[in-house]
């Protein structure tokens, strides 16, 4: 939403704005970064709604902010398949940035799982020498290794042990949090992983900022589709604090289908993929 105008008078627009695709980069076998010919004022953790005419519209976190604007996308379903057919100079629509984003703090630990690393990378670049733990299925699947390495102490976990330890990022976190005192932990990844991270930060009494995901429609807080308990992921989130997570009985357990029905996360993820 444009904040420079008087909303009590009822102005302001949130329409897809036409932008050109400037560059497309293959990150790995199933992930591409789309650089867009536009400049957005955004903070790490915010997202945009990405519209392909006649195909649909979906939210994506920004993977580059500042001089570049980009989203990084893993091939998953019908929509991302269409995205992967896009070429440089194609015109798409974007609106946003939306959501609150992360609040950078000192003495931080960043814990990422899978493509959850995407919104965390611009944050890592902004933080003062954070400790970063990334987990992925295989060595190939780890995104933005160079960008992460540049500014942090990096730990890696892979499911198959092809890089770093064999196991999960939470295995590394469990040991690390015993030895070292952090002031803040940032996390994004599969919700069960984030739930495990939340349990750890609660145990060690560390403030957590977790970026959650739910199916969205409006993206600006009116329709209620993305609700977790009373919280709107698109507007109150996507980044939530420990205090908010404590109030979320649905965190790590339930999410809502397109029709609003509350189902367990397994059913939700099988619908989403």
């Amino acid at each position: 939403m444009n904040h420079n105008i008087d909303h009590t008078a009822g102005h302001g627009t949130d329409m897809p704005k036409a932008v050109k695709i400037k560059k497309i980069v293959d990150e790995n076998y199933n992930t591409k970064t789309f650089f867009l010919d536009t400049k957005l004022e955004a903070v790490p953790g915010q997202f945009i709604m990405f519209w392909i005419p006649r195909i649909g519209e979906k939210p994506f976190s920004l993977s580059y902010i500042g001089n570049n604007t980009a989203i990084t996308v893993q091939l998953k379903g019908k929509f991302t398949k269409k995205m992967f057919e896009l070429s440089v100079d194609d015109i798409v629509g974007i609106r946003g940035p939306y959501g609150n984003g992360f609040t950078p703090q000192k003495n931080a630990c960043v814990i990422a799982g899978g493509c959850g690393v995407i919104p965390l990378v611009p944050l890592v670049e902004m933080l003062d020498k954070p400790v970063v733990i990334v987990g992925a299925k295989t060595a190939d699947a780890i995104l933005f290794k160079e960008r992460l390495n540049g500014n942090s102490k990096l730990y890696v976990a892979t499911d198959d042990g092809s890089l770093g330890i064999k196991g999960f990022s939470t295995d590394i976190a469990r040991e690390l949090l015993k030895r070292k005192k952090f002031d803040v932990v940032y996390t994004c990844g599969p919700e069960m992983m984030m739930k495990a991270v939340f349990n750890l930060t609660e145990q060690h009494n560390i403030a957590l900022q977790a970026s959650l995901e739910r199916f969205m429609k409006c993206g600006f807080g009116v329709c209620g589709q993305c609700i977790i308990n009373g919280f709107r992921v698109c507007k109150d989130g996507p980044v939530f604090s420990s205090e908010q997570l404590r109030q979320m009985t649905e965190f790590g357990k339930f999410a809502r289908l397109k029709n609003g029905k509350k189902v367990n996360l397994k059913e939700y993820y099988s619908w989403r993929s």
Partner: peptide, 11 residues
């Protein structure tokens, strides 16, 4: 399907 809700400037 999305887009389902947008704001066009006057509503």
């Amino acid at each position: 399907a999305n887009p389902t809700v947008l704001s066009f400037g006057h509503g």
